[in-house]
C-alpha cells in the first residue's frame, strides 16, 4: 500500500478526470471528441499497467525468459484502440454533418438554432 505502488493508478485517474472535464465543460463537439479519446487512453493505461511485472518482458515466448507481462489486457486494448479510432471517425463524421446542417459545432449554438426552428414551426 505504498504511494509508489499506486502511482500508475493515479496517473490513470488524472487522465480520466481531464478527459471527463473536457467532455462535460466544453461545448465544442470536436473538443468533446478529443476529450473522449483522452478518457479512452486512460482506460488503456488502466488495463495495461496491472499486467506489467517488473523484471518481466513483453509476452513473446523466447528462450531463457520466464517472466512475462500479462498478454490478455494487451489483446483487449489492442483491439480497443482500433475500434476507438473507427468510432472516433464515426463521431467526427456526425460532427461534420451537424456542422453542415446547423453551421456550427458549438453545443449551445446548435440548441439555440434548434429552438428557433421549433418556434418558427409553431408560428
Amino acid at each position: 500500500m505504498s504511494a509508489l505502488g499506486h502511482f500508475s493508478y493515479w496517473v490513470t485517474i488524472f487522465l480520466l478526470v481531464a478527459g471527463l472535464f473536457i467532455v462535460i465543460a466544453r461545448g465544442n463537439l470536436v473538443k468533446k471528441l478529443i476529450g473522449l479519446s483522452i478518457f479512452q487512453t486512460s482506460v488503456y493505461l488502466l488495463y495495461i499497467a496491472p499486467g506489467k511485472l517488473i523484471g518481466g518482458t513483453a509476452p513473446i515466448v523466447g528462450t531463457g525468459i520466464t517472466v512475462y507481462s500479462n498478454p490478455l489486457p494487451h489483446v483487449l486494448i489492442l483491439t480497443a484502440i482500433v475500434v476507438g479510432i473507427a468510432t472516433l471517425a464515426l463521431g467526427l463524421a456526425l460532427v461534420v454533418r451537424i456542422r453542415e446542417s446547423y453551421g456550427s459545432v458549438e453545443e449551445d449554438e446548435i440548441l439555440r438554432a434548434e429552438e428557433a426552428a421549433l418556434r418558427d414551426e409553431a408560428t
Binding site: G51, K52, G56, A58, P59, Y68, S69, H74, I81
Partner: peptide, 25 residues
C-alpha cells in the same frame, strides 16, 4: 509497460491516422 503490440498500434493509430482524420475534420 512491456506492451509492445499495443504501443505499436497506439503509435500508428493515435499519432498517425487519428491526427490526420482530426485535421481533415
Amino acid at each position: 509497460l512491456d506492451a509492445v503490440d499495443v504501443a505499436m498500434t497506439e503509435a500508428s493509430v493515435g499519432a498517425g491516422i487519428s491526427t490526420v482524420l482530426l485535421l481533415g475534420a
